[in-house]
């Protein structure tokens, strides 16, 4: 198939817009991974929960997702904090493989609890702005995605500043780097772990609110994003905030272009092949410093 440059440019733009959402989801994952050194199996289910929360805020309370995000992000921070403090940590006693199982158990509970409560219907919200487009030359870019793009970059920047500038941020980085040392110098490690888990979960709430206007929610919906988020975390270097952002945008573009060239099905292959190649030849990630 012949590809005009118009199409190619728009495909890149679409990829960047989608990639920003991926980045936001990966941001939560990389943060939790970088500090707790665990792979959080509940990440997809928590995203689903956040999408449900945004949906009901819209449908029941009449608050659209671009507003409710300011309430849901803190709420999900609290949820993440409490989950880590009251469930994951006590049940696993900090052991890696136990954390794996506990987060897996949480995922099963959340996903099926939502199914039990709300059935498996596909739910969508319908706002006039859901169909708005920004016209840029010949390109038609969905307004919701453009907003999501800038919001995602804003969140990543804020997170980066928070980690660099605040006491809590510095404590998080200290724990990530040298847990024992941080503990000895008086850092409350369980608290920092819970804060990190909370931040990761809050990122999901933001992602959910940005995603919902152009997407849908079912009890299984979050799983679709988990694998791609893992890929981004690895590409960006595990634990790296700028890496997750860059990795997200990169994967978005790769997915978009390879989907365009080889079809959406085979296009997915590109993501995982890059993932494997990066792991084999540059496991610290494309953007990570040498470990």
């Amino acid at each position: 198939m012949l590809l005009s440059s118009d199409i190619l440019i728009q495909a890149v733009a679409n990829g960047l817009l989608t990639g920003a959402i991926y980045a936001l989801i990966a941001l939560g994952l990389t943060l939790i991974y970088g500090v707790l050194h665990i792979i959080n199996f509940a990440h997809g289910a928590l995203l689903t929960a956040a999408l449900f929360a945004a949906f009901f805020a819209d449908r029941v309370l009449g608050i659209d997702p671009w507003i409710s995000v300011f309430a849901l992000a803190p709420a999900f921070f609290a949820l993440g904090y409490l989950l880590q403090r009251l469930v994951v940590w006590p049940a696993s006693r900090g052991e890696d493989r136990a954390i794996l199982l506990v987060t897996l158990g949480l995922a099963v509970i959340i996903e099926n609890g939502l199914l039990f409560q709300f059935r498996s219907d596909t739910r969508t919200i319908d706002h006039p702005f859901g169909f708005d487009v920004v016209e840029l030359g010949t390109m038609l870019l969905a307004t919701t995605r453009v907003v999501a793009f800038f919001a995602a970059i804003g969140v990543a920047a804020a997170l980066f500043v928070f980690l660099a500038m605040t006491d809590t941020g510095r404590a998080i980085r200290a724990v990530a780097k040298e847990r024992l040392g941080a503990e000895l110098s008086g850092v409350d490690v369980p608290h920092i772990y819970a804060v990190t888990f909370g931040l990761g979960t809050a990122c999901l709430a933001v992602a959910a609110c940005l995603l919902l206007p152009s997407y849908y929610v079912t009890p299984q919906v979050g799983n679709a994003f988990v694998l791609v988020a893992f890929t981004i975390v690895v590409l960006g270097g595990m634990g790296s905030v700028p890496g997750a952002l860059a990795g997200g945008l990169f994967i978005g573009v790769v997915e978009s272009i390879s989907g365009l060239l080889y079809g959406e099905t085979l296009g997915q292959l590109g993501i995982f092949l890059i993932f494997i190649l990066v792991l084999l030849f540059r496991p610290q990630g494309l953007f990570g410093a040498k470990a």
């Binding site: 495909a11 679409n14 989608t18 919906v221 679709a224 791609v228 978009s256 079809g263 959406e264």
Partner: peptide, 22 residues
């Protein structure tokens, strides 16, 4: 003109719509 396969789930149809439009 063209046959486009996509997996279930597919997260984004922007490119599919783009190709149809073109």
């Amino acid at each position: 003109l063209e046959t486009i396969a996509h997996p279930t789930p597919t997260r984004d149809f922007s490119n599919v719509a783009l190709r149809i439009r073109s």
